[in-house]
């Protein structure tokens, strides 16, 4: 990562000298920019977008750039404009909070495609891309309810992608076993790994045999609590393969291969086809949303549960099970 940055820097130094900040020089070049609120260094949310961007670079030969903004809605519009004015054809704003500014900038740059993560917007070339995490979390909830008696969910902040995921887990568990107990904690941030760990310890003491964090880097604290608690407590890897962190406890991993989905869409844009609606990735997109088991776990998921999971998965894909927005 560091080496990449330096290489990039050498190139950029040269470009800066030539006036890279001016309008795009080579009209044929395909460029994609990424805006994240926070750091791509942290495990989880922003990293997914960064890895997607790298995939676009590798697979489509695009020139890429990203910017880590402070969590500050006021700075988003400028960053969009910076990229758009430099001739970037596709700009990904990674989070619903980028919606407003993308819409505004899109008025001035009608040819640029603005992709917004975790959003269901569709306004001209401003296109929301949602990874419906409630679906894989529904499967995890089903597994937990079939195998255990109580689960603790630890969310970072109360924002739609996390709320929906936790809702999906709850629905999946209650559908499988209505008496299954679920408790839930929001940390209020994505950085306090210490609090996440204590929240998990408390849930385990209160009888939870499943702990499921959805709190980016802070969630690592929860996984660590599970690991320390021993093999009878289980958890899942979320968004990236964390099996090595707790090989005995992680029963399965949900990976949103956002890169695959982004590559698919950007490839289309490159060829001249812009999506005509917002995009909702779900279990139906097997190349994007993956869930796999860890057979080396202390309590691997038994075959009958796997069979049940396959059944509900088929129903979710067929649209027969609603995993979120039940209220």
């Amino acid at each position: 990562m560091n080496i990449e940055r330096r290489q990039c820097l050498v190139a950029m130094g040269a470009l800066a000298a030539m006036g890279v900040l001016g309008p795009a020089r080579a009209a044929g070049e395909f460029k994609m920019g990424l805006l994240v609120a926070g750091s791509v260094a942290e495990e989880g949310w922003n990293r997914i977008a960064y890895e997607a961007l790298k995939r676009v670079e590798k697979e489509l030969g695009a020139k890429i750039s990203y910017v880590e903004l402070q969590q500050n809605p006021a700075s988003f519009e400028k960053a969009f404009r910076d990229y758009a004015s430099q001739g970037y054809q596709v700009i990904l704003g990674h989070g619903f909070e980028f919606q407003d500014s993308a819409e505004t900038v899109a008025e001035d740059y009608p040819d640029t495609v603005f992709l917004i993560s975790s959003s269901n917007i569709h306004q001209g070339k401003v296109i929301g891309l949602n990874t419906d995490s409630s679906q894989p979390f529904y499967l995890m909830g089903a597994i937990a309810a079939k195998m255990g008696k109580s689960a603790g969910l630890i969310g970072g902040m109360e924002i739609p992608p996390i709320k929906e995921a936790l809702e999906g887990f709850t629905n999946g568990a209650k559908d499988a076993s209505p008496d299954f107990k679920i408790s839930q904690v929001y940390l209020g941030n994505f950085s306090d790994a210490t609090a996440a760990k204590e929240a998990a310890v408390n849930m385990i003491h209160s009888g939870a045999d499943f702990i499921v964090p959805d709190a980016d880097a802070a969630g690592l604290g929860a996984i660590q609590a599970v690991r320390e608690a021993g093999p009878q407590i289980s958890t899942f890897g979320i968004f990236s393969d964390q099996t090595e962190i707790a090989p005995k406890n992680i029963l399965g991993t949900y990976i949103a291969d956002y890169g695959q989905g982004i590559v698919r869409i950007v490839k289309g844009v490159q060829a001249g086809t812009v999506p005509t609606s917002n995009v909702d990735f779900g279990l139906k997109d097997a190349d994007v949303m993956k869930f796999f088991y860890n057979d080396k776990a202390a309590k691997p998921v038994p075959d009958d549960v796997r069979k049940y999971v396959e059944e509900v998965k088929a129903k979710i894909i067929a649209g027969e099970i609603k995993t979120r927005y039940r209220k």
């Binding site: 990039c8 910017v67 903004l69």
Partner: peptide, 16 residues
């Protein structure tokens, strides 16, 4: 502040 954002975009220097 503005410059640090550009520095991040154009030279991938962490904005922090």
């Amino acid at each position: 502040d503005s410059g640090s954002e550009l520095m991040q975009i154009n030279a991938q220097v962490p904005q922090v």
